[in-house]
Amino acid sequence: MEACGLSEQPSRSRVFVAGVLDRVPARAVPKLRRIRVTRFGLVLRIKILPGQDFLDYDAATERLRHAWRTHDVYVRALKPGFLEVRLVGYDVLRYVVMPRKLPAAELLKVPVALRSDGALHLRDFRASPHELVIGATESGKSVYLRGLIKGLATQPVALVGIDCKWGVELAPFARRLSALAYTPEDAAELLDVLVEEMVQRYELIRASQGLGAGVAVEEITSDVWGLPEDVRPAPIVLIVDEVAELFLIANKADEKRRDHMVTQLIRLAQLGRAAAIYLEVCGQRFGSDLGSGATALRAQLTGRVAHRVNDEASAKMALGDISVRAVGAATQIAVERPGTAVVGLLSGGWARIRSAFVSLDEVAAVCADTAHRTPYIPALADFRMQPAVLPTQPSKQTV
């Protein structure tokens, strides 16, 4: 601690005792309160000295890493005067191994990746309703999305997909999807239906609030989660794969449709949380040059995940309002480390994560096994995609 500049001048009493004993007074150092051993290293609970704060230790993490000869050091504030220092002994993200004992399953909360400090990264839709996920080709963005779908497939959640790559990414999961649009024209119609569904849910909330006389205050609600379970609609997660395709235009007619789609998407992002409609917007790149509404849409997407990107502008668009260091970390992700990403944390910081590899057939099998759990939403019935049956080839007869 002294070598890393985290000690303080000794107190007067210590100087007096050292003078009486004819010794050099030792500098005051933070006090170690607790040590916990994990499979990744050590977790220290430290009581800091008066006059110190979290930023002093956060700025010294690189010095502490070399002084303790560990792979990495992470600091987290616990309460006033106490910090948690996590020492990681090796590169946790080199080979991602998810913990055997995962947290108890909760609605709309899915473990999707492992953080560089050894902690589990959870995608919590209730805490962060909407998320932006960007990443170049072969960056691991699709694997992240598969892990998310795999976790949501086992829950009573309606999954809705917009995949303008003719459905090649989301069509394998069609048995579990409540709706799927794979052309911009279908996407425009589906967004209109979702906005209408959102309006109907708001009308249900207003009708169920019960503001008449004799109604208890705790029974009044402003979102669907306060409704009784027998009338509460199923939550909807809208997954948009390759959002840039919704912004592209070729003529004036496309421009009008594009503006309408973006407007509906922004409305869902602004008002969907209370109606239990959540967005997962993915794309290879995302910038203001996509067109009108891109910046407004990004402002509504609280969660940010940036995989390896081809341009710094996309990293700034995703992480620029979180941390400059996070933007630099996103642009330094190596090509040979697919699945690695930089994520904005709900606490306000950022962290490196890496998704565990999930194969396409594995997720498709889970979706097929959980097809019976697909909530029925009448407004989305027309967009339910039926698995295609490939034509059989005539067999060659041998003479």
Results as ranks from 00 to 15, higher is better:
Glu312His: 04
Ala113Pro: 12
Thr295Ser: 14
Gly118Lys: 13
Leu301Thr: 00
Ala294Lys: 14
Ala244His: 01
Gln284Leu: 03
Pro391Asn: 01
Leu102Phe: 05
Cys4Met: 13
Ala216Cys: 06
Asp72His: 09
Arg285Lys: 09
Val37Tyr: 15
Val133Ala: 01
Thr295Asp: 14
Glu219Phe: 03
Ile236Gly: 02
Leu120Ser: 06
Asp56Arg: 07
Ala253Glu: 15
Glu242Gln: 11
Ala313Phe: 08
Thr340Gln: 15
Lys31Tyr: 02
Met385Ala: 01
Ala181Met: 09
Pro172Tyr: 08
Ala368Tyr: 05
Ala158Arg: 08
Tyr278Cys: 00
Ala294Met: 12
Thr221Asn: 04
Leu102Val: 02
Ala274Met: 13
Glu62Lys: 11
Ile35Val: 15
Ile46Asn: 03
Val327Ile: 06
Arg14Gly: 01
Ala315His: 00
Ala275Ile: 10
Gln9Trp: 09
Pro375Asp: 00
Gly348Leu: 12
Ala341Thr: 06
Leu6Ala: 10
Trp166Met: 15
Leu107Val: 04
Gln52Tyr: 02
Glu189Gly: 00
Thr61Tyr: 01
Val224Gln: 03
Gly328Leu: 12
Ala275Met: 12
Ala119Trp: 04
Glu189Ala: 14
Phe357His: 13
Ala213Arg: 13
Gly349Pro: 01
Arg201Leu: 13
Pro378Tyr: 02
Ala104Lys: 15
Arg27Cys: 11
Thr70Asp: 06
Thr183Ile: 08
Ala171Gln: 10
Val110Gly: 11
Val324Leu: 14
Ala368Leu: 08
Glu62Asn: 11
Val88Arg: 06
Gln52Val: 10
Trp166Asn: 11
Asp241Cys: 09
Ala306Pro: 13
Gly293Asp: 11
Val399Ile: 11
Arg63Val: 02
Val29Met: 14
Ala60Val: 08
Cys367Ser: 02
Pro25Cys: 10
Ile239Thr: 04
Ser178Tyr: 05
Val110Cys: 15
Ser359Val: 03
Val363Pro: 08
Thr70Ala: 11
Val342Asn: 05
Asp289Val: 10
Asp223Thr: 07
Leu390Ala: 05
Tyr95Glu: 11
Arg123Thr: 05
Glu106Trp: 00
Ile239Tyr: 06
Ala275Tyr: 00
Val243Gln: 04
Leu279Trp: 05
Val143Ser: 11
Val17Thr: 00
Leu211Asn: 10
Asp321Leu: 15
Ala60Trp: 04
Gly212Arg: 12
Pro129Glu: 00
Arg285Leu: 01
Ile35Lys: 11
